[in-house]
Amino acid sequence: MIAIFSDTHSNRGHELEGEALAAARNADVVLHAGDFTSEAALEAFRGECDRLYAVHGNADDPAVCDRLPTARVVEAAGIRIAVTHRRDGGETGLAMFGRSRGANVVIFGHSHRPTVIDADDVTLLNPGSHADPRGNRPGFAVLEQAENDGHESAESTGGGSLEGAIREPDGTLIETLEIRRR
């Protein structure tokens, strides 16, 4: 399972609770699309999950920016996942960012709005903010290998699809999605 977060905006800690906290603790991989804000929040996330792949955002302290890249790519179930906080050019800029990295999906943050956008050959996924939704529904996302893939591990190099959902921290469903290798 892959748990996906963004826009924590905390000076105290991870601000995770309920199903969001359970997802971070139980995930094989945790992705974070930036704006922890503080090293305390970054370290709190690291303390809750085994494998954290994160990028920094525009509101992160310089100490966080020094420790994290602005972008990264990870793979799961044969799906390439590009992670960034934001890109100039909105949806088009995000899609171009993903295509330039051969990604099937781009994980991004910044707007605090849980969003799934099909941009033809790349899916754009914003999990929202679990802790600081700013007028939007609070959110985080979970992706799992599709059951029909027949592969044993989400970290396998084969496969070709992930399915998942964006949820509120209490587990309330916001939206489902499926990502296929194209």
Score class of each variant (00 low, 15 high):
M1A: 05
M1C: 03
I2G: 00
A3Q: 10
I4Q: 07
F5N: 02
F5Y: 15
S6M: 12
S6W: 12
S6E: 10
S6Y: 13
N11I: 13
G13R: 05
G13P: 08
E17G: 05
E17K: 08
A22N: 12
A23V: 11
A23S: 12
A27V: 07
A27Q: 13
H32Y: 02
A33P: 09
T37I: 12
T37F: 03
S38A: 12
S38Q: 06
A40I: 08
L42R: 02
A44D: 15
F45L: 05
C49Q: 01
R51C: 07
R51A: 14
Y53K: 03
V55D: 00
V55S: 02
N58Q: 11
P62Y: 06
C65P: 02
C65W: 01
D66K: 15
D66C: 07
L68H: 10
L68A: 05
L68W: 13
P69K: 09
T70A: 11
T70R: 15
T70L: 08
A71D: 14
R72P: 00
R72W: 05
V73P: 03
V73C: 05
V74I: 15
V74P: 07
E75N: 14
A77E: 06
R80T: 10
R80P: 02
I81W: 00
A82T: 09
A82S: 09
V83F: 03
H85W: 00
R87S: 10
D88F: 06
G90F: 10
G93A: 11
M96T: 13
F97Y: 10
S100I: 03
R101T: 02
A103Y: 04
A103P: 01
V106F: 05
I107C: 05
F108P: 01
G109S: 03
S111V: 12
H112C: 05
R113D: 06
V116K: 07
I117D: 02
D118R: 15
D121L: 10
T123S: 11
T123N: 02
L125A: 04
L125V: 11
L125N: 00
P127V: 03
G128W: 08
S129N: 01
H130Y: 03
H130T: 08
A131L: 07
D132H: 13
D132T: 14
D132W: 14
P133C: 13
P133M: 13
R134D: 04
G135N: 07
N136F: 14
R137T: 10
P138W: 04
F140K: 09
A141C: 12
V142C: 09
V142H: 07
L143F: 15
L143K: 12
Q145F: 00
E147P: 05
G150Q: 04
H151I: 15
E152D: 13
E155I: 01
G158V: 06
G159H: 00
G159C: 11
S161R: 05
L162N: 03
L162G: 00
E163H: 09
E163N: 11
A165M: 02
A165L: 04
R167W: 11
P169K: 11
P169G: 02
P169D: 12
T172V: 12
L173S: 05
L173R: 13
I174Y: 05
I174Q: 07
E175G: 00
E178D: 09
R180W: 06
R180V: 10
R181E: 10
